[in-house]
Nucleic acid binder design. Structure first.
Lengths: 108, 108
DNA sequence: TGAAGTACCTTGACAGGCGAGGTACTCTGG
DNA sequence: CCAGAGTACCTCGCCTGTCAAGGTACTTCA
């Protein structure tokens, strides 16, 4: 919910990349997966999600292609690039580090 | 360093409040304490720190008073208010929750 | 005397999140 | 048969928080 959205700020790219490492996916599905995994506690706002896609694609961390669904709404699929994988691995380390630092700052 | 600063974005207020729960303090000292506690890995930028003070005081979470040092540079001390304590307690819960959520989103 | 340390502060630019609004197609119940 | 809910995408413009850059003023010490 809104409680956590401030805290997840900064993890958007990382979370999207994590989903794309699991498998190619598209905006709507990624958001549903996130909602599932968090038992409905979290989900990106659409504007946030799509602006993240733009950012990540411009940075070369993901690429997109249109799904070939004849029926139903068109889907733009995203796939992670090697640079994306590398960036993600690095971001995982950063996250471990950040947790450590924040936790240490929240104690007397 | 700059690596972690993106991830600490959003924890600024919480970290400052944690310091003020330990004891009344002033900007410069808070930053030094943070540098100490993180072995020099982290420190607020001054502009960030002082804008956080303004925000927190406006929100009624901290109050300030001038230190009575006759000698040396003047110091503006900050103290946490009851609302600040309450906000901090809440933010701790949010942080536990955020860690759980983020970790769960970073796995297959 | 001048550099380094202590201590505060402001301005303006920039980036990311997101509310609000929009398009277009499909499926299902009444 | 058609209205509403669901799927699926997208843009514009505001708001908030960070921070580079710049400034002030005092003290200590080599």
């Amino acid at each position: 919910m809104s409680l956590t959205s401030d805290l997840i700020r900064g993890h958007t790219d990382q979370i999207i990349l994590a989903r794309l490492i699991a498998q190619d996916s598209y905006g709507y599905e990624i958001n549903k997966t996130i909602a599932d995994k968090t038992d409905g506690d979290y989900e990106f706002k659409e504007a946030t999600l799509y602006s993240a896609f733009r950012r990540l694609e411009q940075a070369g961390l993901i690429v997109s292609y249109w799904g070939d669904s004849e029926q139903g709404a068109r889907r733009r699929y995203y796939a992670i690039t090697p640079q994306g994988v590398q960036y993600y691995a690095h971001s995982l380390e950063d996250w471990q580090e950040a947790k450590r630092i924040i936790d240490s700052l929240l104690t007397k």
